[in-house]
């Protein structure tokens, strides 16, 4: 354990624990757009920047992303110093130039007193904030079906060669984890469309309702040891099955007892 000071309060933290976790535990609100618990910290959005110093640093201050900076003994952290807020505001100004119509960005910017970007809005703005959560989640799950393509300002999320991604299983994790709902998908009947690829959804033998894609189920059976028959019915039918099994056991044990 180490002890450090955050916004004037002395707190204890595990050595090596990232500052953002400690800050959040204290209930301090620091914006972070590229942070997702399922994946390693990234340091892309820069909004969680905080000011750090130490008594021994002779007044020198550094600005670091809390999501990646490990807690250290005697560290003095300020999450809302004037400079930090100015930094965050400028960052959001840049975000607004790229994602002017994105509610999440508009909200955060408004919290920092910005309603309109002071820069030139990019041509063809969209809702993608390039936080990389989708691609990192996809990597983490073991598919790596989509990734960041192009460099610099032309960066975007895309499947390989912008074709239907062969490694995608249609689990929708990318779309579900996307903080701005930029990733679009469509479920019509038993067909799912995402990233330009069509998937067939398995249907419950009893209720006829769609569950997950055939590819995803096959993946889980093969790599995660889930018996294929589990995927034949949906959760509702599974519960009914469990209820009637327990019912049969109850009926049988009550009969045994009365004998």
């Amino acid at each position: 354990m180490v002890s450090l000071t955050i916004n004037g309060k002395v707190v204890r933290a595990e050595e090596g624990e990232y500052l953002l976790a400690v800050i959040r535990r204290m209930g301090i609100d620091v914006p972070a757009l590229c942070d997702h618990a399922a994946v390693e910290p990234y340091g892309g959005c820069r909004l969680c920047m905080v000011e750090i110093t130490k008594e021994s640093w002779d007044g020198w201050k550094n600005y670091v992303t809390a999501c990646l900076y490990p807690a250290e003994q005697d560290l003095i952290v300020n999450t809302h110093s004037e400079k930090v807020i100015e930094l965050r505001t400028s960052l959001l100004d840049l975000f607004l130039a790229r994602n002017p119509e994105t509610p999440l960005i508009q909200k955060l910017a408004a919290d920092h007193g910005l309603t309109k970007t002071s820069f030139e809005v990019v041509p063809e703005p969209n809702d993608c904030i390039l936080c990389g959560i989708c691609t990192r989640v996809c990597d983490e799950m073991g598919f790596a079906a989509i990734s960041m393509v192009n460099r610099g300002h032309g960066r975007e999320v895309a499947p390989p060669l912008n074709e239907a991604p062969p490694d995608c299983v249609g689990c929708l994790a990318c779309a579900q984890a996307c903080p701005t709902n930029y990733i679009k998908f469509e479920d019509i009947g038993t067909t799912r469309k995402i990233w330009g690829r069509e998937f067939e959804l398995l249907t419950c033998e009893k209720t006829g309702r769609p569950t997950i894609t055939r590819e995803f189920a096959a993946f889980l059976s093969k790599h995660r040891d889930i018996p294929e028959e589990y995927f034949k019915v949906n959760d509702e039918a599974h519960r009914d099955e469990l209820a009637s099994t327990m019912g049969r056991i109850t009926r049988w044990s009550v009969q045994e007892e009365t004998k």
Binding site: Y42, G43, G44, C45, R46, L91, L94, F95, A97, R98, F119, E120, V122, L130, G132, M148, N150, R151, G152, H153, G154, R155
Partner: peptide, 21 residues
């Protein structure tokens, strides 16, 4: 620099782009 920025972080990707503009 705008075309060689990797694009991972906002200040470099968007900031340099706006500076260039």
């Amino acid at each position: 620099l705008v075309s060689e920025s990797c694009g991972k972080c906002i200040p470099c990707r968007e900031g340099l782009y706006q500076l260039h503009k």
